[in-house]
Design a protein around this nucleic acid. Sequence first.
DNA 1: GTGGTCTAGACCACA
DNA 2: GTGGTCTAGACCACG
Lengths: 131, 131, 131, 131
Amino acid sequence: MITIDPRSSTPIYQQIVDKIKENILRGILLPDQKMPSVRELARLLPTNPNTVQKAYRELERQKVIYSIRGKGSFIAAGFKHRIDQEKLQEITENLKHCLVEAHYVGIDQNKIQEIINQIYQEITPIKKRSK
Amino acid sequence: MITIDPRSSTPIYQQIVDKIKENILRGILLPDQKMPSVRELARLLPTNPNTVQKAYRELERQKVIYSIRGKGSFIAAGFKHRIDQEKLQEITENLKHCLVEAHYVGIDQNKIQEIINQIYQEITPIKKRSK
Amino acid sequence: MITIDPRSSTPIYQQIVDKIKENILRGILLPDQKMPSVRELARLLPTNPNTVQKAYRELERQKVIYSIRGKGSFIAAGFKHRIDQEKLQEITENLKHCLVEAHYVGIDQNKIQEIINQIYQEITPIKKRSK
Amino acid sequence: MITIDPRSSTPIYQQIVDKIKENILRGILLPDQKMPSVRELARLLPTNPNTVQKAYRELERQKVIYSIRGKGSFIAAGFKHRIDQEKLQEITENLKHCLVEAHYVGIDQNKIQEIINQIYQEITPIKKRSK
DNA sequence: GTGGTCTAGACCACA
DNA sequence: GTGGTCTAGACCACG
């Protein structure tokens, strides 16, 4: 369900965070569903428990999951986010970086649009629920 | 013309690379135009010459600029890049990361579209040139 | 009467201890009154009997309650504690932590005073009894 | 300047976070001042660099400090905080816990008031600056 | 069993 | 030199 690329330049813990958020958006991970334990996920990936722990801690800080000591970690329900101006700025910067890079290797706006639409299809669950 | 944010998490040399490529796309830097010398740019930003050096090396590696011994560095002409499959993969991953993050802070697809269009306006030169 | 939050970072057994002491201060639990049995309270909360057991042990250690074999646990009478220097130190540290945190999120001294007064109103029983 | 108590039940990294925030409020650490490096502070306390790193990471997340790779960590300027409702709730809970504990060991409201005033004297810098 | 903390030691990218 | 990441292995409190 979650796979990581140990050769990627993006840190493993970051990849874990990303993949889990993606799976939630896709509707694969549902609210209050139990996550694999730190040790279990570490064994599956495989990676070090500390690395998974770091990812889980980050996810908890972002209120994507919540942890109960002795019980495990669970998907948080209802993410009601106010739009954070700083976060918006950061995303815009990152998007610009992507588009400049793409433009530079000869990927034009149409191709980009195509890719974006495809991503949105992936991360939108089939049964659309009203927010 | 180029401004960098030393507090940003993206490395300074990377910021320099990005900004120069962006300026080329915008038509502000033109083919065969002379770049400022390493020391000069380092003094302007301001940053460490080693950092600028690293940025220039990276730009040269990507064939965005070329160097002539004893003369300086110049903008390369005609970016005719075939689409590199690995690069495409990387950009797609990065785009997905952006969109997931955006989705999570409550930025919907329409808003994203708006931002992307704005970016394209920025990075497209006024006098459109055929490649 | 007692509610616990299983998602809180403070351990459940600690929450139970706190709530019981609070209820005693409020005059809701009276001296020599019988406490619910471990199993009963565990069923009510709901939580694990082991957790309630741990809370009761802690309360007994602090002489807040006393147990009679085969009868149950009861609220201790007259909390006449001399001021323990270590405990005082601990409370002072904890208070400082609270005030620093408060200061940092923009809660000023007046607001803090207001909150403290409100708490004292809550934990003071209506019929004031001389100790 | 910073001392930690390795026997305390509060984690070392948390103690570091607290002490640094306290020192900032006291006016001992000033905006844009350089912090000791991760390794240096670890050597001074003494503790493990990873523990200090964890503290610094947390401080950076809270925007109390900012880090520049290759340069070091620095005190952030101007903490303009909106009052977070959840944080307020957490602080109130924690304060209540303190007051109940205090009440229980025989520290009355007057004594508490005295302690609080003393803490406020400590954490308020001599030259009061308008926020 | 669970998550939380800490240590020791390593490697990397960056300035 | 700096901070950032990762591994291996340990101990603890909690439920």
